[in-house]
Simulated assay, not measured.
Amino acid sequence: MSDLSFSLGQGELLGLLGPSGCGKTTTLRMISGLVQATSGKIKVGGQDVTRLPTYRRNMGVMFQSYALFPHMTIAENVAFGLQMRKVKQSDIAKRVESALAMVHLAGVAERKPRELSGGQQQRIALARALVIEPDILLLDEPLSNLDAKLRDSMRNEIREIQQRLRMTTVFVTHDQTEAMAICDRIVVMNRGKLEQIGSPHDIYENPATPMVAEFVGRINRLEGQWRNDGAIAVGDSLIRAKDGSGAGRVLIMIRPHRIDLSASGAESVTSPEENAVTGTVRHVTYVGDTFQYEVATTGGLLHVEKATSSAAEPLQPGDAVTLRWKTQDTLTFSTEVAG
Rank of each mutant, 00 (worst) to 15 (best):
Met1Asp: 00
Arg166Ser: 14
Phe333Ile: 11
Thr50Gln: 11
Leu68Thr: 08
Glu214Thr: 10
Lys112Arg: 15
Gly224Phe: 08
Asp175Val: 04
Leu261Met: 06
Val103Arg: 01
Lys24Leu: 02
Glu195Pro: 03
Glu313Cys: 00
Val172Cys: 01
Val172His: 02
Ala129Asn: 05
Leu261Cys: 04
Thr38His: 10
Leu82Pro: 09
Ala106Val: 03
Arg95Leu: 09
Val96Tyr: 03
Tyr66Phe: 14
Leu82Gly: 08
Gln176Ala: 13
Pro210Gln: 10
Leu165Asp: 05
Thr169Ala: 15
Glu110Tyr: 09
Ile254Gly: 04
Ala129Asp: 05
Leu68Gln: 08
Asp202Gln: 15
Glu76Gln: 15
Leu14Tyr: 05
Asp289Ser: 14
Val131Ala: 12
Tyr66Ser: 07
Gly46His: 11
Ile259Tyr: 01
Thr280Ala: 04
Glu76Asp: 14
Ala208His: 03
Val96Gln: 07
Val61Asn: 01
Asp243Thr: 14
Ala129Arg: 05
Val188Leu: 04
Asn228Phe: 00
Gly18Leu: 08
Ala247Thr: 14
Lys94Trp: 00
Ile259Arg: 02
Asn145Asp: 05
Gly60Ala: 10
Ser2Asp: 13
Ile239Leu: 14
Arg249Gly: 04
Gly318Phe: 09
Gly107His: 12
Leu261Ser: 05
Thr290Cys: 03
Met167Ala: 13
Leu302Phe: 01
Lys149Ala: 14
Cys22Pro: 06
Glu267Asn: 12
Asn145Ser: 13
Ala307Leu: 14
Asn220Gln: 05
Val269Asn: 08
Pro53Ile: 08
Gly46Leu: 11
Ser310Glu: 12
Val337Asp: 07
Leu301Trp: 00
Ser245Tyr: 02
Pro317Phe: 09
Arg57Asp: 10
Leu34Ile: 13
Cys22Val: 01
Ala213Asp: 07
Gln121Ala: 05
Val61Met: 15
Thr177Tyr: 05
Leu116Pro: 10
Thr177Asn: 07
Ala179Ile: 10
Leu137Asp: 02
Gly244Val: 08
Ile186Leu: 09
Lys41His: 13
Asp229Arg: 05
Arg166Tyr: 00
Ile31Phe: 01
Gly33Leu: 05
Met72Pro: 01
Glu273Lys: 06
Leu238His: 13
Thr26Leu: 09
Ile182Cys: 08
Ser237Cys: 08
Ser39Gly: 15
Gly46Glu: 11
Leu139His: 02
Ala241His: 02
